[in-house]
Design a binder for these strands. Structure first.
Lengths: 175, 175
DNA sequence: CTTTTCATGTAACAAGTTACATGATTTG
DNA sequence: CAAATCATGTAACTTGTTACATGAAAAG
């Protein structure tokens, strides 16, 4: 149930409306925890019902600005420090696992596309880095740390994919 | 919809029952695509309805062995080569993003636990490596490639977490 | 003959996606 | 005044989790 915590985390910085949150999901959290519009509004209603947030202001066009409560901060803290990370699913590795079901040429081409995809991903991160205002807030410091993870991940993945392509046998394995 | 493809991939190697598949999910796919018992049986019924698999044999205790069909192989191939990877969610990075909401000491301790978790993960992978029969099948070749990814990932993540701990400021950032 | 392993299924719930629906306010 | 942006909400559906329920067959 981490969507809830992502929202609490953003609200811990400053109050925001559903619409505001949505934009911040698109900009800074897109690569870490994507969320859709209907999810955000739905969860905001649940968070309000649980008193983890309250409506702190109302604006034009029915805008409701939400602020995190003490209970909400407690919930955020608990999740951050105590909860254990959930199991990961990786659909790219799953494909690699079954790469033996296609021809060796196709498998190698697949891995090489992976190298290109990582180049593009790294490029995206560099663009994000340039376009972000790295002010002195907490989110800036930690955002940079997360970004650095992305860069190291891209480098690791690229090198792995290059190596992996060399491991694919020339001919289909005998069956 | 990758559970379906994970199952097709396993059935592409050899026919299996729901029970067999479940064990293979636990052993070889646990770190890549975990699946529960109820998911496997449910999806197997859907796959049969779509004629991507057929009941190829029946055994004791109501056992039903399923085999992949030509349509199933086509579906697997399409997913593997044409479908684009879905967006990733990473709940660990999400926490890092909001690490500014806890005290610097706690944040540093959190990252250091991450280093330990990677050590344990690497240990798990080494155990898996030792306990697996690396025969000459496709799954063995590609399983090793995936395992290598895990090892490289663990190394990358550990070094990153060590570096990240040095980036946390000594005192809370002014608010 | 008791325990373990094999074997399948269902129900209730939580989380995530896609599409639909509506309308106020601001900007050019 | 037309288009873009701001703003919220609901409905239907898919995917994934947890718990319940049952029983046959093999192993010791």
């Amino acid at each position: 149930m981490s969507l809830r915590h992502a929202m609490l985390g953003l609200l811990a910085e400053e109050p925001a409306s559903g619409y505001d949150l949505l934009r911040r999901f698109e900009i800074s959290l897109a690569n870490v925890w994507p969320a859709t519009q209907s999810q955000v509004y739905g969860e905001l209603a649940k968070l309000a019902a649980d008193e983890h947030v309250t409506v702190s202001a109302e604006g034009p066009r029915g805008r409701k600005e939400y602020a995190i409560t003490a209970a909400g901060r407690e919930e955020l803290r608990h999740w951050l420090l105590e909860e254990r990370p959930r199991k990961r699913r990786d659909d790219l590795l799953l494909r690699v696992f079954f790469l033996g079901t296609v021809a060796p040429d196709e498998a190698r081409a697949f891995l090489e596309r992976g190298v290109e995809r990582m180049d593009a991903f790294e490029e995206d991160l560099r663009t994000l880095e340039r376009n972000t205002e790295w002010n002195d807030g907490d989110l800036a410091i930690n955002g940079r740390i997360v970004l650095e993870w992305g860069l190291r991940f891209a480098a690791m993945h690229r090198e792995w994919a290059q190596w992996a392509a060399t491991q694919i046998p020339q001919r289909p394995t005998a069956r």
